[in-house]
Computed example of a mutant assay.
Amino acid sequence: MPDDISPELIKQAQKNSGVKVVTVRYDITRLLGMTTRDGPPDLLCGVGSVDAPYWAARDVREELDR
């Protein structure tokens, strides 16, 4: 994801939405720790065919288009 979204795009999204965006380089160990200890991030961008089944099996994903 670091190459997908530029810092300028993040700033514009924050300005338009009023939502603070924090990007964290993907680290599965840190992400698992956040999920079990601190609570998962509000939004996670991953590789759908690889990451989605993993998180679905652990019941930590939520449908966003309801």
Rank of each mutant, 00 (worst) to 15 (best):
D3R: 13
D3C: 05
D3M: 11
I5P: 10
S6L: 06
S6W: 04
S6F: 06
S6Q: 10
P7G: 08
E8V: 08
E8T: 12
E8K: 08
E8Q: 12
E8N: 06
L9W: 04
I10G: 00
I10M: 06
K11C: 03
K11I: 00
Q12S: 08
Q12I: 10
A13E: 10
A13P: 02
Q14T: 06
Q14N: 05
Q14K: 10
K15E: 07
K15W: 08
K15H: 11
K15N: 06
G18V: 00
G18Y: 05
V19K: 11
V19N: 07
K20S: 11
K20R: 10
K20D: 13
T23H: 12
V24M: 12
V24G: 05
V24N: 15
R25I: 04
R25Q: 12
R25E: 09
Y26M: 09
D27V: 06
D27E: 14
I28K: 04
I28A: 12
I28F: 07
I28C: 03
I28D: 03
I28P: 01
T29Q: 08
T29K: 09
T29I: 10
R30E: 11
R30K: 15
R30L: 10
R30C: 03
L31T: 01
L32W: 05
L32T: 01
L32D: 12
T35P: 00
T36S: 13
D38V: 05
D38L: 13
D38C: 04
G39F: 05
G39Y: 03
P40N: 07
P40I: 00
P41R: 13
P41D: 09
P41G: 07
D42W: 04
D42S: 15
D42V: 07
L43W: 12
L43Q: 10
L43D: 11
L43K: 13
L44Q: 11
C45L: 15
C45G: 14
G46C: 05
G46D: 03
V47P: 02
G48V: 05
S49R: 11
D51K: 01
D51G: 00
D51Q: 03
D51A: 06
D51N: 09
A52H: 01
A52T: 05
P53I: 03
P53G: 01
Y54W: 08
W55Q: 00
A56D: 04
A56M: 03
A56I: 06
A56C: 02
A56Q: 04
A57Q: 07
A57R: 00
R58V: 08
R61E: 03
E62H: 14
E63R: 10
E63N: 09
E63D: 14
D65Y: 08
D65A: 05
